[in-house]
Amino acid sequence: MSLEHADVQRAAHLARIALGDDEASHYVDDLGRILAMADQLQAVDTKGVAPLAHPLDSTQRLRADEVTETDQRDHFQRCAPAVADGLYLVPRVVE
């Protein structure tokens, strides 16, 4: 499957990474070759093969419903770029 400039721009938008046109062109080439490599998978016969999400066939362990965490807001917000009144700040969101 070939990759277009627009595909790269679309992925960059979905991934929220600012990409100049030059940069995008550079990635079209790189990503195109990586996808060409990935396309080799199409040659593998996988009829009837279930996808494998985890190497071990284990199942989810369940946690008892207990409150184990305490308030560490100040501790956690020490590494935050912008906070006020205990809130994380972002540019105004328009709904």
């Binding site: 990935a38 998978l41 199409q42 996988t46 093969v49 279930a50 996808p51 999400a53």
Partner: peptide, 13 residues
Amino acid sequence: DAYYKKAQQVRRL
């Protein structure tokens, strides 16, 4: 399907 799902099937193989 063409990439992720296929890759996971190949992963099983």
